[in-house]
Design a binder for these strands. Structure first.
Length: 677
DNA sequence: GCAAGGTC
């Protein structure tokens, strides 16, 4: 008898791709009643493990099961919110997922093998266990050893998929359990704190009665970043500094030289050094060098990068960018938009993808140029989620069939991809150093020789500077002008969306798919407000000379106070230098309520601060411990709940004080701030 | 009315 194998992927696109590879196009496609996205692919396949099989390949759409408190706890006033720490949690299939789960049941009934093809990450392992739960309920034999397996795959390239089909492995229950703990903790802690905060504070807030004051393990650290920057701006103390400016005019060109010491915070010292320069009268050219330089093309596009670029270049918030990318993906124009991978797989035929783009669009000729010899393999970044390639166009679409907003995101994706397949920009950089007294000064100039990728990627700026006059090494001249100039350090700017995303990314707050949602959530909750950043006034500590090339300028805003440098950024990208041209990008300012919440929890004196990103990191460590068998999921849930109970109790005390002291009528968010402090 | 994580 032929073995029946039921394969289930995490999403329809994977089911389709895998079915295509395994079936050799001998496939029957059936619709699934009640869900327009899910399809069943029926074909034959000779598995190394089970021989010739009848295969049904289908998919779920993310998690199949939902979790919520038992019905008696659902109403907000049904119980004390702290009861949710131990309330019964029901697991069920939500209405919208019933058709998919029914399909699994029907297909699993006579299957001998359940073959899970979810993404190879923790969530995927958990989704796999949900699929197994549904299938084994109908068909208990699938619980027997070796009857439920999963595929290990890291991309959907043909040879790789066939290799994965050859080597099924067991589902990793430890990983699935780790996620189960995460789900339970987020639900219990989020719901209990949210109900408690809302029911205690709501009536004191102006505006709508229905305002929710929520706590979430991702919302709060996100808000925390905004508040922290806010205070860094507010508490900033400008510090005076002094610098020496040297200008020399040669061949009719005015050249400004930068002091090697940049600036000093001690006026006396600066004046003494300046006087020594004047005493020397002449300056001597110590170095003239001209070297080739290049500006690297961008890395393949990840979700986080797409969101940051959306804010910077398209003036769209990250949430909107993701919505549009999702639409473009579903219409089949771009690849899967949720990816951490910034490396293209070797097996991918990138030239074929470039070829599709010669059909039209303003990038048509550039794409043709790549095919005519301009092509260069993309750079490899450091990240690979082993599930999805970088975001790239998969088909040509006439821009006129897209909405205006779709067009802009699509154009960015296409241009980014073509830039990746192009060559670095090349230039020539000249550096001139002089010794004036015993002080060093320098200037530099740039000539762009080959624009290459820049021609298709207008989001990067790299332009030739003014020509430098000829200086000879050893040449001595009397500078046209030398003066001492004072200035003050200026505060960093409020947090921008690209910066916030970088911080979340670096601290593991949210995932590529959810970061934008957390940001949208804290706006919706009125914890923060956004406004377009106006053009920053030119800072006086900014050494912008006319012949300075814009290549790798000093970090944008917020150069610190000399010793205590700058802001706490931990991102890979932490304040990309390209921020230079981003007037109009949104900046985040916390509301009084947002500040009150963070301050309130920060000042509680616990070793765990709900506002800081450590908690999420700790959660990550605990999940790892479960995965490696060092802890059980029960232990982790129990000890974490105990920690939060302590914080909850303390919160409760303060909220009680707050309620007692103020009558609802004349209280304001400021009162909350004062009292929780 | 609540979280965060998948996904359409």
């Amino acid at each position: 008898m032929v073995t029946k194998v039921l394969c289930v992927a995490e999403k329809p696109s994977i089911a389709k791709a895998v079915a295509n590879h395994l079936s050799g196009n001998q496939v029957i496609i059936r619709n699934v009643t009640g869900n327009v996205y899910t399809k069943n692919y029926e074909f034959h396949y000779n598995f190394a493990t089970w021989g010739n099989c009848d295969v049904v390949m289908t998919s779920v759409a993310g998690h199949l099961l939902s979790h919520d408190f038992a019905t008696q706890y659902r109403s907000w006033r049904s119980c004390d919110p702290s009861a949710l720490f131990e309330a019964t949690i029901d697991t069920f299939v939500e209405e919208g997922k019933k058709a998919i789960s029914k399909n699994i049941e029907v297909q699993a009934r006579y299957a001998q093998i359940l073959y899970i093809w979810t993404d190879c990450d923790r969530e995927g392992e958990n989704i796999g266990s949900e699929i197994r739960d549904v299938a084994t309920k109908i068909n208990r034999r699938l619980r027997d050893p070796g009857k439920t397996v999963r595929a290990r795959f890291s991309n959907i390239e043909r040879a790789h998929i066939i290799e994965a089909a050859r080597n099924p492995v067991p589902l990793d229950d430890a990983q699935a359990n780790a996620v189960a703990s995460r789900i339970e903790l987020d639900l219990r802690i989020g719901a209990s704190f949210t109900r408690n905060l809302t029911l205690s504070i709501q009536h004191m807030l102006q505006g709508e009665e229905k305002r929710v004051v929520s706590y979430g393990s991702c919302q709060f650290p996100t808000l925390g970043f905004v508040v922290e920057r806010y205070f860094r701006v507010r508490n900033f103390l400008p510090e005076p500094f002094w610098t020496i400016k040297v200008m020399h005019e040669q061949e009719g060109i005015k050249v400004n030289f930068r002091w090697a010491r940049n600036h000093l915070f001690d006026r006396m010292v600066a004046v003494i050094l300046f006087e020594r320069c004047l005493e020397a009268k002449t300056a001597k050219v110590t170095k003239v060098s001209t070297k080739p330089t290049s500006k690297w093309k961008p890395l393949p596009l990840t979700t986080v990068e797409l969101q940051k670029c959306g804010s910077r270049f398209l003036r769209m918030d990250s949430h909107r960018v993701m919505q549009l990318a999702e639409q473009l993906y579903q219409k089949g124009w771009i690849s899967y938009p949720r990816t951490e991978t910034d490396q293209f797989d070797r097996g991918m035929d990138l030239r074929a993808l470039v070829h599709k783009q010669i059909q039209g669009g303003p990038w048509r000729q550039f794409a043709q140029g790549l095919l005519n010899g301009g092509f260069s393999a993309p750079r490899n970044g450091r990240n690979n989620d082993k599930a999805h390639p970088p975001i790239h166009p998969v088909n040509f679409v006439d821009p006129s069939v897209l909405t205006h907003e779709e067009q802009r995101v699509h154009e960015f994706v296409v241009r980014r991809f073509l830039a990746c397949c192009s060559q670095d920009a090349r230039g020539s950089k000249t550096e001139i150093s002089i010794l004036y007294g015993i002080e060093m000064f320098s200037t530099s100039g740039l000539v762009v020789l080959e624009r290459n990728y820049l021609d298709v990627y207008p989001y990067d700026k790299w332009t030739s500077s003014q020509d430098l006059p000829n200086f000879r090494e050893g040449e001595v001249f009397e500078p046209t002008e030398a003066r001492i100039q004072d200035g003050r350090t200026s505060p960093p700017g409020y947090l921008t969306e690209p910066e916030l995303i970088s911080l979340m990314d670096a601290n593991g707050i949210g995932t590529d798919a959810t970061m934008a949602e957390h940001i949208a959530k804290i706006k919706e909750r009125a914890y923060v407000e956004t406004r377009p950043r106006g053009r920053q006034p030119r800072r006086d500590d900014e050494d912008v000379s006319e012949n300075e090339q814009p290549f790798e300028p000093e970090p944008a805003r917020g150069r610190g106070r000399g010793r205590a440098t700058g802001r706490g950024r931990g991102g890979r990208d932490g304040g990309n230098a390209r921020d230079g041209g981003n007037s109009g990008v949104q900046e985040f300012i916390p509301t009084t309520l947002g500040v009150a919440l963070i301050e309130g929890y920060e000042n509680m004196g616990f070793e765990i601060s709900l506002a800081k990103p450590f908690l999420r990191k700790e959660m990550e460590l605990k999940m790892k411990a479960i995965c490696e068998g060092r802890k059980t999921s029960r232990e982790v849930v129990q000890e974490t709940i105990d920690q939060y109970r302590a914080v909850y109790a303390r919160t409760q005390q303060r909220l009680d004080v707050l309620r007692a002291v103020r009558s609802p009528r004349n209280a304001s968010s400021w009162d909350i701030l004062l009292i929780v402090k």
